[in-house]
Design a binder for these strands. Structure first.
Lengths: 212, 212
DNA sequence: TAGAAAATCAACACGATGTTAAATTTTAAA
DNA sequence: TTTAAAATTTAACATCGTGTTGATTTTCTA
């Protein structure tokens, strides 16, 4: 109680700072953003910034940590779902739908931090988190030893593709619902890319010669 | 002739500077690297740096541009290959093999610039370049209008997955040959991820119940 | 409304930046 | 080997962002 006396004001200031950072990151590179830029944008004194954060990297990391912790908490209870839906339909795994939903809720920050002026170490942290969640039980459903490539490689393939689709989706202003985009993602993953592009079908129908 | 009199020395200095940048980027964040760090590492005077580059961002961009131009030139003559090999075998597209080969040749720089301390705008440029090359003729092999998702989305899926596999490969010190890793990538793309992970087969063999 | 917490303000030392002019070293051609 | 041009070095400079400090003002809430 006594420690949280004035926390409303503090939180307001910290929120102003974070919003200023997100606003600035949408148009200029994080490297070129100065503390003064941030405090001007947040309409606070430059000294105030240092009452809350060590430096701009500390600020960025705390913004990122917030996202990562929410993502982590949000999916700790999700159990391994019905596997059949992977195989017989395009119904996406609810874990993936929730990822898109959460990314949609935090679109401005994530668009900035995953964008060309963003922070590649954040993307790596997201990759690691998702791989941890998605692949924790994978050995229950396949013999890893029998595969002719490392399972980690497939994991990186999937997670990079997932984040790539997220980035595409954010950059095209989220024309699809989270469920729709997750369903599209699942179609590509399950059918393979050639089938998803309709190339297999087209070649059969048009009887394309072997050499072109 | 008269203009290239002393270019050997100039090129040597510029090369020293670039090598110093790559060396430093392997261990510390680009943002935290100073001009003095670079010139100390390259054993040249700090002022000399400014005879060659505007600032460290100019240096980074010129290093990146070199890679991108080589990538671009290298594949301008590659024709659309036999499409059947996409469908009936795991023989990877020579374009993809060449990407891995070129990335292997420039592993130290690419590992650094695609890594967590790297430059996300470079990855975007690589994505754009590869999409341009890979998808220039795609409408010859499928009816884009009939797809139930945007072809650009599939393009971003594929290219992000490709770069994800490249990153995995670089970070695990390239245990596979370019042809091997490209072949693995193609297996995942063509079979789909579930089949590549052996999950379809496992579930059929073990008769796993619908709910778990 | 009084007291405590938070934010502001002004001033400071510090270090990296980018520029300059003069001196020095390196290079390649005569 | 000499020599003139080119490249680099050196030292000095103003500028800017950083992070800190102590005194002051504003804001909140009890």
């Amino acid at each position: 109680m006594e420690k949280k006396k004035y926390e409303r004001k503090t939180l307001q200031t910290q929120n102003d700072i974070k919003e200023a950072l997100i606003f600035l990151m949408e148009e200029k590179n994080f490297n070129t953003i100065t503390i003064r830029d941030i405090t001007n944008c947040a309409r606070i004194n430059r000294g105030t910034f240092y009452l809350h954060y060590l430096d701009k990297y500390d600020l960025l990391e705390k913004c990122e940590q917030e996202i990562l912790e929410h993502l982590d908490e949000r999916y700790n209870e999700i159990l391994t779902p019905n596997l059949k839906q992977f195989l017989i339909s395009d119904t996406p795994h609810p874990f993936i739908v929730d990822i898109f939903t959460y990314f949609q809720e935090n679109a401005p920050f994530l668009k900035a931090v995953l964008g060309p002026n963003g922070d590649p170490s954040f993307e790596e942290k997201v990759r690691r988190l998702i791989i941890k969640k998605m692949f924790r039980n994978v050995s229950n459903f396949t013999n890893i030893e029998n595969l002719n490539m490392p399972i980690e490689m497939i994991a990186h393939f999937i997670v990079s593709a997932l984040i790539g689709v997220v980035r595409y989706w954010l950059n095209t202003n989220m024309q699809q619902t989270p469920k729709e985009i997750a369903s599209m993602l699942f179609q590509i993953m399950n059918k393979g890319t050639l089938e998803a592009m309709g190339i297999k079908k087209y070649i059969l129908e048009h009887n394309i010669s072997e050499e072109i």
